[in-house]
Design a protein around this nucleic acid. Sequence first.
DNA 1: ATGCGCGACCTTTTT
DNA 2: GGTCGCGCAT
Length: 700
Amino acid sequence: MSNAILEGLNAQQKEAITHSNGPMLILAGAGSGKTRVITRRFAYLSKKISPNSILTVTFTNKAAGEMKERIAELSKKDLKKTWIGTFHSQCNRILRKEISALGYQNDFSIYDSDDQCNLVRHILKEFKICEALYKGIVGRISGLKAQSVTPEDFLSNGEGFGFEERLARVYVRYQDELKRCNALDFDDLIMLTVKLFESHPDVLEKYRKKFKHILVDEFQDTNAAQYNLLKLLSSGHSNICAVGDDDQSIYGFRGANIKNILSFEKDFPKAKIVKLEQNYRSTKNILHVSGCIINENQQRREKTLWSDRDTGEQVCQCWFGSEGEESTYIAKMIKELYLKGMYNYTDFAILYRINVQSRVLEDALRHEKIPYRVVGSISFYQRKEIKDMSAYMRLSINPDDNVSLRRIINTPNRGIGASTLSKVEQYAKKNNFSLFASIKGLMKANGMTAAAKEKLDAFLKIMNDISSGSYKDSADMLRTIYIQTGYNEFIEEARAENVREFIDAAEGHNIDDFVSSISLMSGEENADQKENVVSLVTLHGAKGLEFPVVFISGLEEGVLPYFKAESPQEVDEERRLLYVGMTRAQDLLWLSGARKRRLFAKVQEQEPSRFLSHIPQEVCRMIVKPASKATSSPTKVSKRIKSFKPVSAYAIGSRVKHPKWGVGVVRDCYGDGEDQKITVNFPAIGVKRLALKFANLERV
DNA sequence: ATGCGCGACCTTTTT
DNA sequence: GGTCGCGCAT
């Protein structure tokens, strides 16, 4: 066995990688080299069996991409046909082949949450149920599907009263509509694969034989349907390797079931359990403090992370008068550490529980002229113009796709309004047609005004032109759509830019593959991380990331834990959220809160988060700022980190740019007013003393 | 068919 | 405070 695969690993990691057959649960603590273990195990296994017979599932495209990349580095095998991907993409791949067994066609559309909402709202309108309830209903339906509860199951167990009864009716109808549209929503991808395997043992057998080993990443995030899928596929050989950390389970609200990891041995009785407890990321202090937090949770698998790293700086705990002071403090601290030359802006992250918290933080960063990026805002593929373009593509491939048709029949505006559409809907219903077929039928029937017919005919012609074209790739088709539909004339410039980017991304992609996977793309994975900016990110969004310096803001009752978390289980999940945030930090960690915070409309009096009471004071530095107008200067802490002067015009250690000599580091800066002098070390030139007034320097 | 004003309600969100 | 959706007005 070549040793490259086993090089530089600790004993537990080796044990996990070389385990041969049978179920295994790897409890991988934060920063314990989890990805490394999975990728190496993949490489290890593929020495004995074909890499194509290992099913590797992740939750995000990003994780799948990283894994592929790292496996490619390790192994010289051809990885084109491997099964490394998200749960949804793997199911998509299986269903594209096998779904005819369930009465769908294999060119089905995939509805994302936006399409899903549109369809539910349409049904609610028809059922004359208050449309405003759609969000709750979509959530419930999604929850049911996550448990593999089909409409039929739900009907047979249903109470049959009030809301539940109406929910059942909507669910039945929704699922029926999806099938008529030849469409699957995200949850269907999993649920229907499970259903397929359960109802067609021969198909299951085929994949069971195909996948000799199964590797699951982020196992703590699996929902019941996903777990069922894994159990079905691994039944027989039981070669399932699940990697996860129950302490980082923060997606309970999406149906993730923490019990899957807590009671793994119940389903896989002889499971080997490996704990990865050596942390390669954080200082001892950070680990100690975060360990004390997570220890408060009752339902967890005991683990104790340890680190080879230094004790490190104390964790800073701060209490401010208001959220404004909190933000100012954080911004100033970042500035100081940056100017000191210790860290780049990319090394900092500010984490928070809810998105609205970013606003005041952004204000403070802008005020200090610190570049930043808010991570995880609306994803590229969810933008209206992108969704419109894809809807045209989708409809042209799958004419039954009513949701896409409703989306674009009057976009851009071609005068087909609600009354015309409602005639189309009625005619479709009467004849059991899709909307597209209904429009075609109506052209020959009576009962439409000539004007309406003309407009519908124009729409049919556009769709016909799009469908009958021959294209060399997806980009080619999109360009045709963009022009044929007149979208290019109706769109504003900023959005047109997005469309161009979309077309670029489609370049060289086969149309069927592109359309079938487009709903599964998030577009977040290619966000350039190279920019030197501070990251602002929610605690959820921070999972899987790491930063040398982390600030967690808003550690107050009502924010973290969020006021909606009432049951002990929900509070535990909030605690895990804090734990995830803390364990992102490599060197320095600040935990802060404010006594007064503007939340929604009013200013609220806040109490410190209950989680803070379990922090051992001996490894913490407490900073309390009484509510006052006085500018909160961060000197107290800066002294602790290393004594350095308050920021002057140009702080010692800061970087400046000279028009001729380029970037240099400030050695000294003295004098004041007109006579200020500065000493700068330019790497290429050497140390220079300049009169600030004439030097024409620029901060970098 | 579009535009505006009013009221309700606020999380997190891998796909 | 700010977004989103509805209903009314043109």
